[in-house]
């Protein structure tokens, strides 16, 4: 692969972040959707609060319709997936057509879900295709450095989301550990002190989730 520009490095990192954001929030949306069937009708409020987005929906029905598909909502699944695509489309050379195809398929999945009377089935396909994207990236991207930058983005996003969603300490410890090794291999410039702070923060009880979010957002 040889040389990677600053711009491509940035795109790889953000492709990793947005892909992970779509993956985790789509899974959470699926869980919340199920909850709203017969457990808590307005569970969407908890969902919005957990992932730190404004509740602009007002009702369960509007939320179910808008959150995944609204092109004008910058927090929607669609908008986040579009951002992943916007980065991926510029990275065919770096990640290869096979990996890029899975991001393209995710776009189609969401379009199909929008038209479907059973959208969760298509959203499941989207989740499957993200898994396939990561599998393909692992298997077919020959450059270790490219894989490392992509996965650094993924790990950073996961820590951010897990902290916002108040995941158990064991999950956060595992993710910080994975990110620490990945970012060191990626050759991108980052703040080592932030990694150290994160390692300390995940050991503290009670867990300082806001502190973790603050640190992780400041890692580059």
């Amino acid at each position: 692969m040889g040389i990677i520009t600053v711009e491509k490095t940035d795109r790889l990192f953000w492709l990793g972040r947005y892909t992970e954001r779509v993956y985790t929030t789509a899974r959470l949306y699926a869980k919340s959707y199920d909850h709203m069937i017969d457990v808590i009708a307005d569970d969407y409020k908890n969902f919005c609060s957990a992932i730190d987005i404004p509740d602009v929906y007002g009702s369960k029905e509007v939320f179910l319709e808008k959150y995944p598909f609204d092109e004008n909502d910058m927090n929607s699944l669609f908008s986040n997936l579009q951002r992943a695509y916007d980065n991926a489309i510029e990275l065919r050379y770096e990640i290869g057509s096979e990996a890029l195809a899975y991001i393209q398929l995710c776009i189609y999945d969401l379009q199909k879900a929008k038209e479907s009377d059973a959208p969760m089935l298509e959203i499941q396909s989207l989740i499957d295709h993200i898994m396939a994207f990561w599998g393909t990236a692992d298997d077919l991207i020959a450059s270790e450095q490219i894989r490392d930058i992509l996965k650094t983005g993924k790990r950073v996003e996961r820590i951010d989301l897990y902290a916002r969603l108040a995941f158990p300490a064991a999950d956060l410890k595992r993710e910080v550990n994975r990110m620490k090794f990945r970012i060191a291999k990626s050759h991108i410039s980052y703040k080592e002190s932030v990694v150290k702070n994160l390692e300390t923060l995940v050991e503290n009880e009670p867990m300082d989730y806001y502190g973790i979010v603050r640190e992780i957002e400041n890692i580059l």
Binding site: T5, E7, T9, Y93
Partner: peptide, 25 residues
């Protein structure tokens, strides 16, 4: 992708001393 040539935009390249260069990360 198929030729293995680097895909670049104008911003990735620059001229210095009558030669063309590509700036890596």
């Amino acid at each position: 992708e198929q030729t293995g040539a680097h895909l670049v935009t104008g911003q990735d390249l620059f001229v210095e001393g009558d030669k063309l260069y590509y700036k890596n990360y």
